[in-house]
Design a binder for these strands. Structure first.
Length: 444
RNA sequence: UCGAAGAUAGCUCAAUGGUGGAGCAUUCGGCUGUUAACCGAAGGGUUGGGGGUUCGAGUCCCCCUCUUCGAGCCA
């Protein structure tokens, strides 16, 4: 019977067939220990020269790393290890002998592995990360479904920059001129929220920024819920409830994989409601207390400004200093208007502030969520669009949303690869997606 | 885009300005409980590209290319 390796414990003392690839093979004279993988896991096989036909023994000698095989044998418990199973192999069918495999069981540099990404994906660590990514996305979709959100797919070709800030990828669109690859589905999701109440988008987004850091890729997946009649507090309550659900479900369902890749799951188990909520102003006070300066580039080097001036956006060192005292995601809300996008609603109690919220993951993983209550007043929105120098006619449909039954509404965006990085404790975001796109890499 | 470090065998790395090495991978041989197995042997190189200094350059100098890490931008 053909079985998956991850279900092998149900077949002790039974004969099973495994279809997969040779991950590694060790031998000790008349014994061989081929290690097999089938996509679901790894298992060690045992081949004894005196217990198999000579042809099977000879065939095993021919196998190279990543050769594809079908093996049959009896499942047994490992003689020394608890909870580990092996396969007493009695037959082998070779599907294909692999050429010398470039990714050996020794160490490799990250550039080499990226070049061989199509093969690197086969390594148990990468496969585990992608299984966890799958679980994260399943958890997100399940949460959204169970809370009555409607999947609302936003377009990827757009006629203009959504927020007017970052650089976009440009392409030609028939006779209609330039099109840009979407950097966010949010504006469209707002139309969806006013049509369907609660919606979410989940799809790829693109940024043409030349960002060569461990936190950036040019093509990444984002989940963006948008809710009619939600104010900033409703939004933050949702973020909290949602993140707790996703993290706890992933820890529960993928504990094996998380432990395999060396993730300390006890830190994730602490991610339970409520999360700390700080205003931007309170966060700045933390920076003052810790004496973290604003570092500004100047013509001849750097300038360290202390105390950190109110109104400036936070950089990596600031986020780190704010987050280090907490073991849960930190929500920072009510930001200076100058640091944020045009569509965010002003705080009625202080017009210098916008009702935005950023969520910083613990353990220094940085921003995973950015959200806000949206400007729902027609005149104020027009004012913002003009202030930001955005093309008003391109935003006509968006402005319409404030003309025809405008309501308070809110939403946020979650970076899928960012949350994968955090939950898997990844050194670099390139491991969080099957084929990472970075400014210097488009292949494979 | 800016800053720092780096580029040597298929891979990961050594090599005082003086005959370029090791481990893994590959090929061959040995070993009945191996776990990045181990032991023995063999093959494998225009030292990223170009120029310069020198009797002699992987090593020193200049230019270029590429990579990694950090910063900014952000999810």
């Amino acid at each position: 019977m053909w079985v998956q390796i991850d279900k092998i414990s149900q077949y002790v003392d039974k004969e099973v067939t495994i279809k997969g690839w040779l991950y590694n093979i060790r031998s000790a004279g008349k014994l061989m220990f081929p290690e097999l993988r089938d996509g679901s896991g790894l298992i060690q096989g045992v081949v004894s020269k005196k217990e198999v036909p000579e042809s099977v023994w000879d065939d095993f000698q021919k196998l190279t790393q990543e050769s594809s095989v079908i093996v049959t044998g009896m499942v047994s418990k490992h003689p020394k290890k608890e909870d580990v199973y092996e396969l007493q192999i009695n037959n082998l069918e070779i599907i294909s002998i692999a050429d010398p495999y470039p990714i050996t069981p020794k160490e490799h540099g990250v550039d080499f592995l990226s070049e061989k990404r199509h093969l690197w994906l086969r390594s148990p660590r990468q496969a585990s990360i992608l299984r966890i990514r799958n679980e994260i996305i399943m958890a997100i979709r399940t949460y959204m479904y169970e809370n009555d959100f409607i999947l609302f797919d936003a377009p990827i070709f757009t006629p203009n920059a959504c927020e007017g800030t970052s650089t976009l990828f440009e392409t030609n669109y028939f006779d209609l001129g330039k099109a840009y690859l979407s950097q966010s589905g949010q504006l469209y999701a707002e139309a969806g929220a006013l049509a369907l109440g609660k919606v979410f988008t989940l799809g790829p987004t693109f940024r043409a920024e030349n960002s060569m850091t461990r936190r950036h890729i040019t093509e990444f997946w984002m989940m963006e819920p948008e809710m009619a009649f939600f104010d900033l507090n409703d939004n933050m309550d949702l973020i909290e409830d949602f993140l707790e659900y996703v993290v706890q479900r992933v820890v529960k369902n993928r504990k094996k994989e998380l432990e395999f890749i060396g993730r300390d799951t006890s830190k994730l188990e602490k991610v339970m409601k409520p999360f700390p909520r700080l205003t931007y102003t309170e966060a700045v006070e933390i920076l003052h207390k810790k004496d973290i300066p604003l570092i500004r580039k100047t013509a001849n080097g750097e300038e360290h400004i202390r105390p950190f001036p109110w109104g400036e956006d936070f950089g990596a060192p600031h986020e780190e200093a704010i987050v280090e005292d907490f073991d849960k995601p930190v929500m920072i809300h009510r930001w200076p208007a100058g640091a944020k996008a045009f569509y965010m609603k002003r705080d009625p109690e202080n017009p210098d502030l916008v009702l935005g919220v950023d969520v910083l993951a613990p353990e220094g993983f940085g921003e995973i969520i950015g959200g806000s209550q949206r400007e729902d007043n027609l005149d104020l929105l027009l004012e913002r669009i003009r202030e930001h120098g955005l093309p008003e006619d391109e935003f006509q449909w968006y402005i319409d949303l404030r003309k025809y039954g405008s309501v308070p509404h809110s939403g946020f965006g979650l970076g899928i690869e960012r949350i994968v990085s955090w939950l898997c404790n990844l050194e670099h975001i390139r491991e969080a997606i099957p084929f990472a796109r970075r400014p210097n890499r488009i292949r494979p």
